[in-house]
Computed example of a mutant assay.
Amino acid sequence: MLSFNGVLLDVLSLATLALAAWALADALIRPAAGYVAAGKLTKPGWGAILALSLVVLLLMGPMSFLGLPAVIAAIVYLVDVRPAVRGLSRGGSSW
Rank of each mutant, 00 (worst) to 15 (best):
P44M: 08
V11N: 06
L59V: 10
A18V: 03
V11G: 00
G45W: 02
L78D: 02
M1Y: 03
L12M: 14
A21S: 08
R82K: 15
V55G: 06
L58Q: 09
F4L: 11
S93D: 05
A84V: 02
Y35V: 13
G39E: 12
L9T: 11
D26P: 00
L57Q: 02
A74P: 05
R86Y: 10
G6K: 12
I75M: 11
S94Y: 09
A70I: 05
T16C: 09
G39L: 14
S13R: 15
W95V: 15
P83Q: 12
L88D: 03
S3Q: 08
L59P: 00
G47D: 00
L68A: 13
L14A: 08
D26A: 11
G92S: 14
L78R: 07
L41I: 15
V36L: 11
P44E: 05
A74W: 04
L12I: 10
A27H: 04
S3A: 08
A48E: 12
L14G: 12
R30E: 14
G34L: 12
S53Q: 04
L14F: 00
S13P: 00
L24P: 01
I75F: 03
L9F: 07
D26S: 13
D80W: 07
I72S: 03
D10K: 12
V56R: 03
P69C: 07
V55T: 13
A32M: 08
P69I: 06
Y35K: 12
A21P: 00
Y77P: 05
A15W: 09
F65R: 09
V11P: 00
V11T: 13
G92N: 10
P83A: 12
L88C: 09
V36I: 11
L68W: 12
Y77F: 15
V76D: 10
G92F: 07
A73H: 01
M60P: 00
